[in-house]
């Protein structure tokens, strides 16, 4: 494992609140009624309460935590999808987020068209996509099907294509949200090998519930609880802490 000193992502004091509509507050009538009655129409829920973290270049970091602990919100903030209330996010290098596989996939388009559309959404030009295209198709093992419409793919094929774009897309920082369990056993094995090969070369942030994956791939892990960093450090130690959450 090569250690590079440079920082890829630095987060300080990150806070995020969500407004949860109380009654049915979507609609003009309710909005006017609420306003007349002096009701805000929403309650504020604090999802992240001051998160600090730093991720170095080439590090493979796992983020774990219970449902609702703020993992996905943190990822979406890092990816620039949400806007932070407070705090600061510094990102050095290009960031390729996979909050969900196959974003923007359209069943009416062919496999090829979908790859290019997905690429454009991730910020790659046609030329860059053409350079990656063969690699993606090969990894997905879908060479004969690229000119068929996506709606004629089996669900396994769709996921394989999406996943191949995700891991073949050449970005400086890769963000993955629970997307490891795809395809059949053979494809899984291939993905696992690929992940193992990423060690030290690529910055990866992985959100997962699988402690096996944390122990296997990560250099470091972070346990989130109630919107704060509870424990961070050695993957084995963090995995243990995560499992202990249920044994208290």
């Amino acid at each position: 494992m090569s250690q590079k000193p440079h920082t890829a992502i630095k987060v300080t004091g990150l806070t995020k609140n969500f407004r949860l509509p109380t009654e049915r507050a979507s609609g003009l009538k309710q909005a006017i009624l609420n306003w007349l009655k002096g009701i805000k129409g929403y309650t504020t829920q604090q999802v992240l309460r001051g998160v600090d973290l730093e991720i170095k270049k080439g590090e493979f970091v796992g983020i774990v935590g219970r449902n609702g602990s703020g993992k996905s919100t943190l990822l979406k903030l890092l990816a620039g999808i949400y806007y932070p209330e407070q705090g600061n996010i510094e990102v050095h290098g290009s960031l390729v987020p996979f909050i969900e596989l196959g974003v923007g996939f359209n069943p009416e388009l062919t496999g090829r068209e979908n790859v290019y559309l997905n690429g454009a959404l991730l910020g790659f030009s046609n030329k860059e996509m053409t350079a990656m295209y063969d690699d993606i198709v090969q990894f997905a093992e879908l060479e004969p099907f690229m000119d068929a419409k996506l709606k004629n793919y089996s669900s396994g094929m769709q996921v394989r294509l999406a996943f191949s774009i995700a891991i073949r897309a050449k970005g400086d920082i890769l963000i993955l949200d629970e997307v490891l369990a795809v395809g059949d056993a053979a494809f899984q094995e291939k993905c696992n090998n690929y992940f193992a090969s990423l060690h030290g070369n690529q910055t990866v942030i992985l959100v997962t519930h699988s402690m096996d994956n944390v122990r296997r791939f990560c250099d470091r892990a972070i346990l989130l609880e109630d919107g704060k960093v509870k424990t961070e450090g050695d993957p084995k130690m963090v995995a243990k802490a995560y499992e202990d959450l249920w044994n208290q």
Partner: peptide
């Protein structure tokens, strides 16, 4: 900027392909 132009082009192309399909 270039990145946004590419995305814009790709979205327009998709809309266009799908609009009168079938």
């Amino acid at each position: 900027c270039r990145k946004n132009r590419i995305l814009l082009g790709e979205l327009v192309k998709t809309d266009f392909r799908l609009r009168y399909q079938d």
